[in-house]
Amino acid sequence: MLTLKSRLFKSAAALSVAALALTACGDSGDSTGGDEAAAGGSGEITIGVFNGWEEGIAVSELWAYVLEEEGYAVDLQYADPAPVYSGLSTNDYNVTLDAWLPVTHADYVDEYADDIVDLGAWNEESSLHFAVNEDAPIDSLDELAENADAFNNRIIGIDPGAGLTQITENEVIPTYGLENLEYTTSGTPAMLQELSNATEAGENIVVTLWRPHWAYDAFPIRDLEDPEGALGDVEYLHSFANAEWAADEANAEVVSWLENFTMDSDLLYSLENEMFNENQDVEDYRPIIEEWAAANQEYVDGLTQ
C-alpha cells in the first residue's frame, strides 16, 4: 500500500503561509529561519509541520503556544513529509507531531529508524474513508457502482499526489468495480467546495476524506462501509523526535510532556473547526489558540503536568 498522504490548506491565506514556509520562513511569525539548526538544551524547539495536514498544524500550533507559555522559544517549520523526516533525522527539526502509523509513514520511520525516536501515539482514531451526505441512498462502497447515477457518476477526490488518491486508484476503484465513475483529483480545497455546494443544494455526493477532519463537524456527512478493507485499518497519530535531542537531559521535561500527550478526535475536531472552518481568512492562529485554550483550560493545563 502506498504511504504518502497530502492534505488540505485551509484557504488561500494558508496556501501563502505554506509557500513562505517552503522558502524557510516559519509559520509562527517569530521564526529563526531554516538555516539555523535547533540546538538541544538551549530552550529553543523546532517543530516540523507537514504542509496542509490540518491535524498536525492544529496540534503544532497548540504546542507552540503551550511551550512558549512555559518559557521555551518555538519555531514551526513547514515542509512536506519527506523533508520533515529527513530533517528530523539530522536534528534540523527536533520534533514532529503528525506521524501516521502503522502504514502511512512506515517507510519514513524505517528509513530513519537509527536517528529518530517514537514518543508515543496521541490519537488512536485515524483512518481513510469515502464519505457521503448523511441521507445518501447507499451505506457501503460495494453499493456505489450500481448506484453511480445517484452521485452523477462522480467521485470527488483530493490532491493528485496524495496517498489517499493513490490508494483510491490502486485499491478502492478496482476492488469495488468503480472504473466507470469519473474520479476527479483537483485538490482538497476543491473537494471541500464541491461538498459545500452539494450540501447547500441538497444533492448526493461522494468524496474521499480522512479522520480526523473538521469536515465531519461542518457538514452532515457519514462514511461508507469498506467491507473489503481497501482503505486500510485504523492508524495512530504519533509524535517523533530526533533521537539525540530526545536523549539530552536538558530536553527531558518537554520529552516527558510529549510522551504523555493525548487528544481524542472530538477535542481535535473542535480545535480544527475553530482554526480552519470558523476562521478561514486568518493568517495568525495564535488568537484562536488562546481563545480555544481558555475554553479548554483544564485540558491545556494538563499537557504540562
Rank of each mutant, 00 (worst) to 15 (best):
G161E: 13
A73V: 12
A252E: 15
D118E: 07
G33V: 07
G229D: 00
A37N: 12
T32S: 13
A19R: 14
W292R: 05
I173Q: 05
L22S: 13
N147M: 08
G71H: 04
H105A: 03
D248L: 08
G177I: 05
L303G: 09
I138C: 08
S127D: 10
E203V: 03
T208M: 12
G163D: 00
W210G: 10
E69M: 06
L2K: 12
D217T: 15
E298I: 08
H105V: 02
D284Y: 04
V300A: 03
A252I: 04
G34F: 13
A162S: 15
I288P: 05
E111H: 13
G56N: 14
L192S: 00
L178T: 06
T168S: 15
N91L: 06
L20S: 12
A12E: 13
G157S: 01
G34V: 07
L101E: 12
L224I: 01
T262F: 09
S140I: 01
D27I: 09
E169R: 15
E194V: 09
G161S: 07
L178W: 00
V207F: 04
F9M: 11
T46F: 09
T165G: 05
T168Y: 06
L22A: 14
G43A: 02
A145V: 07
A58M: 06
D30P: 00
P287T: 08
V172M: 12
A79V: 01
Y72L: 11
A246G: 06
A218M: 08
N51V: 15
D301R: 11
A37F: 14
V172L: 14
D301A: 14
Q166I: 12
A252Y: 08
A136N: 08
V103H: 12
E111S: 11
L97D: 01
N180W: 04
W63I: 06
A247I: 05
S256P: 06
A73Q: 13
L101A: 03
P83F: 03
I288G: 05
N277P: 00
L101T: 10
V117D: 04
Q280R: 15
D92K: 15
W214Y: 15
V282Y: 10
L62D: 01
T175S: 14
S89H: 07
L192D: 01
A250F: 04
Y85K: 09
Y93I: 07
E290R: 12
D233T: 14
G26N: 00
N296G: 02
S28N: 15
D92P: 00
L303R: 10
